[in-house]
Nucleic acid binder design. Structure first.
Length: 486
DNA sequence: ATGTTC
């Protein structure tokens, strides 16, 4: 477990801080933290800075160990961490991805205005809550046999669309087309697959949610309209969930395996939680193949949930989907490791980029960005905490230079779940939200207390830092009308 | 995040 930060922290400018390379600590590179003074106040007493420093000790890291402005303490790596590794000398690490592999967000736009749904909000929320199972350990409506599950793990969203859950457009505007190549169902344990079989199409718990929102403010009319965001008051829908018990199990299994592998390869690290193996080792390759399975499961999960959301809207509003227009704007992961090409010291290099609580936001022109958006840059969807705003952003050239094309992933916790629960009961949190006109349905009051707004940093401030540093630029801000929680 | 301390 990482301790309170005792290293040196230098202020570079209003939004950037450096942890200089300290060879006596074992650092092989520097750490860079993106934050303003206010966000740094919380971070100074957070062991997350030690974790930034620890990641800077990992073999084969290319560029700095980085922390986004929503950074906070996590398992081994900080949440909000970005680290890239050389494919020959570098490592791959489950702690750099997190337990919820391919936790991610998707944004859908509609042809509805706030007044079209105001009177139906309770009914819509109830319907979503009924149709999409939510809560820890919750099982879904789909029972997959082993063979079908393997197809899910190999093809992600593409499998879901083939089964009738969604359409071609959904795949076009999902990061990586909804699945990563290289997934091998035999690379994960029987137990992981068993956990995955009954859970496809479930929301889960924690910070996962479904939200009915409306556009609060548009910052770039042209970019917004290209993404189907046409005016303020327009209704949008957001899905935030991941790979459920399967991803958790893949991570847990891999941590044990890679702890042994780290010893075997003589990798000496300041924290056991940084368990890793060389990218090109059998253990490293096996983790990637398993992680890719969980990533694909996460995409299929969000895709199936999207299908049921469309059905719920149709039923409650009594109109066909063509009159509702629930089209996917984009879907992006914020917990994943990927092989990508970047410019390093003036030449192209393939790297293994770990993003944990960080969102890929490639700049304009990259082939990974869907053709439709390629000249704009990669959309990044940043959910706020419960009851506050969420953001639609775009990737930038600056992000390519500074963060291997990465930005923040949300508000970021500032209070532990335990501390949050002590402050208020879930009932109070719920009644405050309802008092502000936000409908709430939750599988558990405990989760509501853990996820209360006061337990998070200010998402608008976090977004402000990314915008001013140039890690991503503002397109639109959405505010919640109704939320469904696990 | 997680059938939440296998």
């Amino acid at each position: 477990m990482a301790k309170q930060f005792e290293g040196t922290l230098e202020k570079i400018d209003d939004y950037r801080w450096r942890i200089p390379r300290d060879e006596s600590y074992g650092m092989v590179t520097e750490g860079i933290v993106f934050a303003d003074e206010e966000l740094m106040k919380d971070l100074r007493t957070d062991a997350a800075l030690t974790q930034v420093q620890n990641v800077a000790c990992m073999p084969g890291i290319v560029g700095p160990s980085m922390a986004m402005p929503d950074c906070h303490y996590g398992y081994g790596f900080p949440i909000g961490g970005v680290a890239a590794f050389d494919l020959n000398e570098g490592v791959i690490s489950p702690g750099g991805v997190g337990y919820d592999i391919n936790c991610g967000v998707r944004l859908l736009r509609t042809d509805l205005e706030e007044q079209d749904v105001r009177g139906k909000l309770q009914e819509l929320t109830d319907s979503l809550f009924r149709e999409i199972p939510a809560g820890v350990g919750e099982k879904g409506k789909i029972q997959l046999d082993e063979k079908e599950l393997r197809r899910v793990l190999e093809r992600g969203s593409e499998w879901a669309v083939t089964q009738g859950y969604g359409n071609e457009n959904d795949l076009e505007v999902t990061e990586d087309g909804g699945f990563i190549e290289g997934a091998d169902p035999d690379a994960i344990s029987d137990h992981a697959r068993e956990r995955g079989r009954p859970q496809l199409g479930t929301l889960g718990s924690g910070n996962h949610f479904l939200e009915i929102q409306c556009v609060d403010r548009i910052y770039d009319d042209e970019a917004a309209s290209r993404m189907g965001i046409l005016d303020e008051g327009q209704v949008t829908v957001m899905v935030h969930t991941g790979s459920r018990g399967l991803g958790y199990q893949v991570c847990d299994d891999a941590l044990k395996q890679l702890q042994r592998a780290a010893q075997k390869y003589g990798i000496d690290l300041p924290d056991r939680q940084l368990a890793c193996a060389p990218v090109d080792s059998p253990e490293g390759e096996s983790y990637f193949a398993g992680m890719a399975c969980a990533a694909n499961y996460g995409w299929a999960n969000r895709q199936i949930i999207t299908h049921w959301m469309r059905e719920a809207f149709e039923r409650v509003l009594g109109r066909g989907i063509s009159q509702i227009g629930l089209q996917l704007v984009y879907d992006v992961a914020h917990n994943v490791a990927k092989f990508e090409e970047h410019e390093v010291n003036g030449r192209r290099q393939r790297l293994c980029v770990h993003r944990k609580g960080a969102t890929r936001c490639f700049g304009p022109g990259r082939e990974e960005v869907p053709e439709r958006y390629r000249d704009l840059g990669q959309p990044a969807i940043i959910p706020g905490d419960m009851g506050t705003a969420s953001w639609l952003m775009l990737g930038t050239d600056e992000a390519m230079q500074l963060t291997f094309g990465s930005t923040c992933h949300g508000a970021g916790r500032t209070m532990s779940r335990t501390a949050a629960k002590k402050r208020q009961h879930g009932r109070e949190v719920q009644s405050e939200l309802e008092g502000r006109g936000i409908r709430v349905r939750s599988a558990g009051l405990k989760t509501l207390a853990e996820e209360a707004s006061y337990a998070y940093k200010d998402v608008d401030r976090v977004i402000g830092v990314t915008d001013r540093v140039g890690l991503s630029r503002r397109v639109a801000r959405m505010r919640p009308l109704a939320v469904v929680k696990g």
